[in-house]
Nucleic acid binder design. Structure first.
Length: 874
RNA sequence: GGGCACGUAGCUCAGCGGGAGAGCACUACCUUGACAUGGUAGGGGUCACAGGUUCAAUCCCUGUCGUGCCCACCA
């Protein structure tokens, strides 16, 4: 016996264990089934499940469960990411609480601590993924720092280096003075910040003249090595080639003509600080300006600046410089402005362009084939609009700074000789062979950007560089499911690396879903306190309700607003289905062996079977186009709106009537149909469906069942037409009853005016349903409509009448009919006008014209009948 | 500065060339033998605004207004 309500907490972990024990999640490269592969975007190893994860992993799980049912050999490759900066920051914070820092500890000890932290808190998120129902092949779980993946990283690095696609260079990089590491362009976030534009007067050397420059960063002037003006800027023509004197320092600054200087910005003369500004760096290179570095790794001023400023932090330096300039009367103008200031996305610190030696990947070269692949449709973005985002970035891609001054990550496989010579090799031994005997080698202490190893995920997880069977079968994957926030970080880089090392794109489709926001459309963040915790929602409403909600909300838009009421609604949906199961159980609806739905005789059963055919097709089409919201909506409508609302009501009279063939058939049919709905719903609500399947049908597990392949002949046109008519007639009667305030319990009579033979037969056949569902005492088809007050309506050109002599307000009923007639007249005129238009008839699709003619005929029939009805009332 | 979305019922959103939809909320009635986490019925929309294309525009195009996001080295 089923319990009174569905209790997810009693079901979820039990079913999940059954699945896992049965090996239902396992891919099998030796099977001859066609592969279907999704690479799980690896969450941070020490992370915890947030609503964004819940969305992305639900959608992936829905897809893999669906494809498994369709007979594919499904690989959903799970794993975690070491998340270099994020993880190292957490551990460093923990150390700080103990009054320690990583330098005091030393590299080896520190890494031990990180691994310990990984062991302790890693796996939390994987447990949470299991709660979500994720059916990934856990036996293949990988970690970006495990041995196999590290080998892949080293191989890729060495090969790219040997091809000149990875190189070491001294350039300006985005330096995070808090984390003490370089970061990539993508990890820099521009934030609007209030600041000032200070206009500062520099003296021209050997002259009384001055030149005024404008800057938002006066402290960097201590590193100035030139001034640029536009070559055609008449104001400064005479000064080009002369020198200015750097205030406070005294250095001579060449005044150069360069098109970079914009006459409309500031004063048109711009100070050049090549060691601390990306633009100035470029101008400096062009004009051979000196690179004066003034910062240490903390962004404190060093000995290249005058003594009074040395050791000052950036902000203190700014104040000191301004004060000194003020004292000399050099600040001619101060203008408050709002401008963009770069911040590190992890530390939040203001980023400093800083001159260092770093490793770079030649992203432009790697990007070219990736761009072509998308242009040629080898990889398809869904929705397609993201292609342009991808192209935009890839076509303007900058060298990728891949080295990080961290300890947690893949250490760069480069060794230095005492003379600075570099040997890039797979291991130290190889590096020694390259260096020759007796050389002392020191390994590069830096590690690689986390995204470097993530970029290899689609093939490194499959055993590359070994040529494994898994690699052959599951690369390329079918689809990558992800949010648009990591198209650049990850998708683009997987494309580059996949094509480079596998010779083929890593996935055929990229499904880009929206980001989850709160009910007000705000980005969720811990500081705002508006974070919706998926675990709480699962506790409260069950995992299936959350999964259904996320599926239903996954329309292809820009963002998703998460509100709890929606989850509650889909919890109700789960309850509804549960109660339908109880109904089946109570009425002894049991599966019959070798049941063949094609042999069903009862029209209601044939009708519902036809609805299944339609539903399955709709779902298949929706899945093929990643229209998850449609998947959810079709299921909701069919299960609640058709199966529960109509079908179960239709079979009640039979199930609760006399024993006989009809009752026997309907019991079996209801059980079969219910089982089919469980199949179709399973990918989205796996726990509930599996539980009901087990309790009611008990034949194997749903997770291993096949997706229904219905014969089109199962759709019975006549049954569909008939039951459609039944539904409309019942709807009309109910509507009129409510409008006339006929008490729900009271019975009425239904008269049908002059039905033809076919209608007569149809009415006879479905009279029981009409009586039962519309509370009709008797359906009368053979007598003329009675005189007196009655509620009348038209369905399919046939006039129906419900005598309500005592209840009816004749005047009101006349008004209602007049209103109805007026509405029909309006429609009628609109269509007539359309059909009278020769252009419409000539140019419109013939099907459309025909459709309009049919509509007109039907409307006019209704009008005639309603006019009759009105006459009768008079 | 460049680019991309989005403005449809009170709310959240589907639809996207030929009859305005869903869920929630709201109103009325109903404890009927699966289900009150329910049933039945109902109210509610110049589909942001203005032009244009078309036989036909919520849907396509242009512009305006509003909202959100991404990218960018402009002092």
């Amino acid at each position: 016996m089923l319990e009174k309500t569905f209790r997810p907490e009693a079901v979820e972990s039990r079913q999940y264990e059954r699945w896992e024990k049965a090996g239902a999640f396992s891919a099998d490269e030796r099977s001859n089934r066609l592969p279907y592969a999704i690479m799980m975007p690896p969450p941070n190893v020490t992370g915890s499940l947030h609503i964004g994860h819940a969305l992305t992993f639900t959608l992936q799980d829905v897809l893999v469960r669906y494809q498994r049912m369709r007979g594919k050999d499904v690989l959903w490759q799970p794993g975690t990411d070491h998340a270099g900066i994020a993880t190292q920051m957490v551990v460093e914070r923990n150390l700080a609480r103990e009054g320690l820092d990583r330098h005091a500890l030393g590299r080896e000890k520190f890494l031990e601590r990180v691994w310990a932290w990984k062991e302790e808190s890693g796996g939390t998120i994987l447990g949470q993924l299991r709660r979500l129902g994720a059916s990934a092949d856990w036996s293949r779980e990988r970690f970006t720092l495990d041995e196999g993946l590290s080998r892949a990283v080293t191989k890729v690095f060495v090969q790219l280096h040997r091809e000149g696609l990875i190189y070491r260079d001294k350039r300006l990089v985005n330096w995070d003075p808090v984390l003490h590491t370089a970061i990539s362009d993508l990890e820099v976030q521009q934030k609007e910040t209030k600041g000032n534009l200070w206009h500062i007067a520099y003296d021209i050397a050997d002259s009384d003249e001055k030149i005024v420059v404008a800057t938002t960063r006066p402290e960097t002037m201590l590193g100035d090595s030139g001034i640029a003006v536009h070559p055609e800027d008449e104001r400064y023509q005479a000064l080009v080639g002369k020198q200015a004197l750097l205030p406070l320092v005294g250095r001579r600054l060449p005044i150069v003509a360069d098109a970079y200087a914009d006459p409309t910005k500031g004063t048109g003369a711009v100070k050049m600080t090549p060691a601390h500004d990306f633009n100035d760096f470029a101008v400096g290179k062009r004009h051979g300006l000196e690179m004066v570095n003034i910062f240490d790794r903390d962004a404190r001023l060093i000995e290249t600046v005058p003594a009074p400023f040395q050791g000052l932090d950036r902000m203190a330096a700014r104040a000191a410089v301004l004060q000194a300039l003020e004292a000399e009367g050099r600040i001619v103008h101060t203008e408050p402005i709002i401008h963009m200031v770069p911040h590190g996305d992890r530390s939040g610190a203001v980023i400093e362009p800083w001159l260092t030696d770093q490793w770079f990947a030649d992203a432009a070269s790697l990007a070219r084939p990736a761009i072509e692949a998308v242009e040629q449709g080898k990889t398809r973005f869904v929705p397609q609009q993201w292609e342009s985002t991808f192209f935009e970035w890839m076509r303007n891609i900058q060298p990728w700074c891949i080295s990080r001054q961290l300890w947690w990550g893949h250490q760069i496989p480069a060794w230095y000789a005492p003379d600075g010579q570099v040997f890039v090799a797979h291991d130290e031994e190889e590096a020694r062979r390259m260096a020759g005997p007796g050389m002392t080698l020191t390994r590069d202490p830096d590690v690689l950007d986390t995204w470097f190893s993530s970029a290899l995920w689609p093939f490194s997880t499959l055993g590359w560089p070994e040529e494994t069977a898994a690699l052959k079968k599951y690369y390329p994957g079918d689809v990558l499911v992800t949010g648009f926030d990591i198209i650049f970080f990850w998708v683009a880089r997987m494309m580059m690396m996949g094509i480079k090392f596998m010779g083929e794109v890593p996935f055929r489709d990229v499904y880009v879903h929206a980001l989850v926001r709160d009910a007000e459309g705000q980005k969720m963040s811990k500081s705002k306190g508006n974070v919706v915790d998926p675990l709480v929602l699962m506790d409260k409403y069950g995992t299936d309700a959350l999964r259904f909600t996320l599926t239903a909300l996954a329309a292809q838009g820009r963002d998703i607003r998460m509100n709890e009421e929606r989850v509650e609604g889909y919890r109700n949906f789960a309850t509804k289905l549960w109660n339908a199961a109880r109904f089946c159980e109570m009425n002894n609806c049991r599966v019959v062996p070798d049941f063949n739905p094609r042999h069903m005789m009862e029209p209601v059963n044939r009708w519902m079977a036809g609805r299944l055919v339609v539903l399955a097709r709709e779902l298949e089409n929706a899945y093929a186009e990643y229209r998850f919201n449609d998947v959810a909506q079709f299921l909701y409508q069919a299960i609640w709106g058709e199966f529960c609302d109509w079908y179960l009501e239709f079979i009640k009279p039979v199930l609760q009537g006399e024993e006989g063939p009809a009752r026997q058939e309907s019991r079996a049919a209801a059980a079969w149909i219910f089982g089919q709905l469980l199949h179709l719903l399973h990918p989205v609500m796996p726990f509930l469906t599996e539980e009901l399947w087990g309790q009611l049908q008990g034949d194997g597990m749903l997770i291993g069942a096949s997706w229904p392949a219905y014969d089109d002949a199962l759709f019975d046109q006549e049954a569909d037409r008939d039951l459609g008519w039944v539904i409309r007639v019942i709807g009309e009667i109910r509507s009129l009853r409510a409008e006339m305030n006929v008490p729900p319990a009271s019975m009425v009579q239904l008269f049908v005016a002059e039905p033809d033979a076919a209608s007569h037969e149809r009415i006879r056949r479905y009279a029981t349903l009409l009586q039962r569902l519309a509370r009709i005492e008797k359906v009368e088809t053979s007598v003329p409509l009675p005189r007196g007050g009655a509620a009348q309506f038209v369905v399919d050109g046939l006039l129906y009448s419900i005598p309500l002599a005592s209840l009816i307000d004749l005047r009101k009923e006349r008004e209602r009919l007049h209103g109805e007639l007026a509405r029909l007249l309006g429609e009628d005129e609109k269509i007539q006008k359309k059909l009278a238009n020769p252009n419409f008839v000539a140019k419109a699709d013939p099907d459309v014209v025909e459709e309009q003619r049919l509509r007109l005929a039907s409307i006019e029939a209704s009008r005639r009948k309603l006019t009759q009805a009105l006459d009768r009332l008079a």
